[in-house]
Simulated scan of single mutants.
Amino acid sequence: MKVKVINKSRHALPEYETLHSAGLDLRANIDAPIVLGSLERMLVPTGLFIELPVGYEAQIRPRSGLAIKFGISLVNSPGTIDADYRGEIKVIVINLSKEPFTITDGERICQMVVAKHERVEWQAVEELALSERGVGGFGHTGVL
């Protein structure tokens, strides 16, 4: 799939790290390091602008290495970039650890997965078909 992109960052375009990777790592595009204190969050620019085809979204997800090693995640995970958004991709990064974390220019701060989606057309009904699960909710299929 071809996706139009404007790269106003100082970095190369995102690439897949391996042949079967689902996500592209996005990099911070900042003039000075950002120090995130414990439980602090910050909107981090990437310098990237994209035009997705209609019927697709870009999901912004945490990087597992940053999460396990440093407690770094995203506040709205996954974030969604809609096909009609044309602004800069910015990422809400949060430090969930007790230690400060420094984000430097060019650091891989998240991953982006492009996915097809469907639009819902609601069909109002009086009842739903029965299923094996039924109304079982949180913790229904496992032990909490």
Rank of each mutant, 00 (worst) to 15 (best):
S73G: 13
A83I: 06
I60W: 00
V114G: 06
I94G: 00
R108Y: 08
N95R: 07
D25F: 01
G55Q: 03
I60D: 06
G87I: 12
L96W: 08
R108T: 03
N95I: 07
P78K: 03
E40Y: 01
K8I: 03
A32W: 10
S9I: 05
V93H: 00
M112Q: 07
P45W: 00
T18R: 12
I50Q: 02
G79Q: 01
V44W: 01
L43G: 03
V91P: 00
R119G: 06
L74S: 00
P78D: 05
I34F: 01
F138S: 09
I109G: 03
P78M: 03
E17Q: 15
A67L: 05
Q59A: 12
L19F: 15
I60T: 09
E126W: 08
V5N: 01
I30F: 03
G134S: 05
R61P: 01
I34H: 04
E126Y: 13
A129C: 02
R108W: 08
L13A: 03
M42Q: 15
L24E: 08
F138D: 09
E107F: 04
N76C: 11
I103L: 13
L13D: 15
T46V: 04
I81N: 00
R10L: 12
R108C: 14
L52T: 04
R133Y: 11
E127K: 14
T80N: 08
G71Y: 01
T80I: 12
V5D: 04
I68A: 14
T141H: 14
G106C: 01
P100S: 07
E40R: 01
I109H: 05
R10Q: 12
P45M: 07
D82R: 13
P14T: 05
F138L: 06
A129Q: 11
R86H: 14
V75L: 12
T102P: 01
E126D: 14
L13I: 11
D105K: 07
H117S: 11
P62I: 04
H117P: 06
S131N: 04
H140N: 12
R119F: 12
T141I: 13
H11P: 06
A22P: 14
K2G: 15
G55I: 09
N29P: 02
A129F: 01
V143C: 03
L48P: 05
A67R: 02
E127V: 07
P78S: 06
S64L: 10
L43E: 07
H117G: 08
Q111L: 11
M1L: 10
R108Q: 08
E17H: 13
Y56K: 11
E88Q: 09
I103K: 02
R61A: 06
V143S: 10
G87T: 05
N76F: 03
V125T: 14
N7H: 05
E51W: 12
P33R: 08
K2W: 15
A22W: 05
S131L: 05
H20N: 15
G55T: 15
L19V: 10
G87D: 09
A58P: 11
S38N: 11
V44P: 01
S97Q: 07
D82Y: 10
Q123D: 13
E17P: 10
L130R: 12
Y85D: 09
V5T: 13
